[in-house]
């Protein structure tokens, strides 16, 4: 069967199945299980209303448990066990973690991830704040915004190609086709550099790609927050003789600090999961490994589920504080 036909069929079956499920399960509940007539009509209506939410929730709950909750538990178990030849697994305690900690490549990945965590959210938020503040003050700000926002729509892989062209190097003496080398030579560099093979520096060049993508996101959120600041506070500051920089840093930024934290944490999560950029641009060579790519290497190239799952748990552990913080905030908001 042609995949396109299969796709259309899936939409019809999937959507039709969902609609049918919701419709008929409601019908069955109201007509047959707890009919709203007869001697117990009142009680039946109440009972039906207690069951109905679960009918509405069931498909989502099943999908969430199978596709997100169960894997967390299963990965934890995989990270603590070893596959036996011929199927089955045995509990090995922390052996996988010990093996992982003994690998220099893991420490390299962890070190790089921490550099990413420090640099990318900071620069994305800073550039985003700058762009938001500047574009809000001019007439063509909306066009500028949508152009800065545009990389959001580009895949990490597409961005990798785009930036590989920027970092491209041709042999000395030829015309450079990568902008970076062209600029480098114009401003006194002696010979073209293979930028992505220069350790430590190459990490930052990869980070540039993610900053380029995430700045638009930060800008959009922060721009909305800036617009929400009450004008009286700014007017008062102007009357008191504050200059534009004072207004920005002492009046505006403190009032949107909550949003800045949200932007920062959201980008932090993106950074923790960053995979495609490294996979496509260097594949972890030349000391650019990061945790997500390390994990992919272990799981699908080395076929080592134990260590791979252990490194996945490290990512999970790094995400957990943010997870807890988000849940606490959401609960506070609901009250």
């Amino acid at each position: 069967m042609h995949p396109a036909v299969q796709g259309i069929l899936t939409i019809i079956i999937g959507v039709g199945g969902c609609v049918a499920y919701y419709y008929f399960s409601n019908q069955i509940l109201d007509r047959f299980v707890f009919p709203a007539r007869g001697p117990n009509a009142g009680r039946n209506i109440n009972r039906a209303n207690m069951v109905r939410p679960w009918l509405f929730l069931a498909p989502a709950l099943i999908a969430l448990s199978v596709y997100l909750a169960y894997p967390v538990v299963e990965t934890l178990w995989l990270s603590l066990s070893e596959r036996l030849p011929g199927g089955g697994a045995k509990f090995v305690g922390l052996d996988n973690y010990r093996q992982m900690l003994a690998e220099p490549k893991f420490w390299e990945a962890l070190r790089n991830n921490f550099m990413w965590l420090l640099v990318v959210p900071a620069f994305s938020t800073a550039f985003g704040l700058l762009a938001a503040q500047l574009t809000d003050r001019i007439k063509w700000g909306n066009i500028a915004k949508s152009l800065i926002f545009m990389p959001m729509a580009i895949s990490f892989v597409g961005a990798a190609v785009i930036w590989k062209l920027v970092y491209d190097a041709r042999p000395a003496g030829q015309d450079q086709i990568g902008v970076l080398n062209a600029l480098y030579l114009t401003f006194g560099g002696s010979e073209p550099q293979q930028w992505l093979t220069i350790p430590i520096l190459n990490n930052f060049l990869l980070m540039v790609v993610l900053i380029w993508i995430q700045t638009g996101f930060a800008m959009v959120i922060l721009s909305a927050a800036l617009r929400g600041i009450p004008e009286e506070t700014i007017e008062a500051a102007i009357i008191d003789g504050a200059n534009p920089f004072q207004i920005f840093f002492k009046i505006k930024v403190p009032q949107i600090s909550g949003t800045i934290v949200v932007v920062w944490t959201t980008i932090t999560i993106v950074v923790l999961k960053v995979f495609d950029i490294v996979f496509a641009m260097t594949n972890g060579q030349w000391q650019t490994q990061v945790l997500a790519n390390y994990m992919y290497d272990k799981l699908f190239r080395a076929n080592d589920w134990g260590v791979g799952s252990a490194s996945a748990m490290v990512i999970m552990a790094l995400v957990t504080p943010i997870l807890v913080w988000n849940v606490i905030n959401a609960r506070r908001e609901m009250r």
């Binding site: 207690m50 997100l68 894997p71 967390v72 995989l78 999961k273 996945a312 990512i315 988000n326």
Partner: peptide, 29 residues
């Protein structure tokens, strides 16, 4: 819009799952 016991808990769970890295799901799934 529906009232039932455990609703707040479910909302919190959804917020939590929002950030679970899908890397964890690869091998088990």
């Amino acid at each position: 819009w529906m009232d039932f016991p455990g609703r707040a808990l479910l909302v919190a769970a959804v917020v939590g799952l929002l950030v679970v890295p899908l890397q964890l799901a690869l091998i088990p799934l």
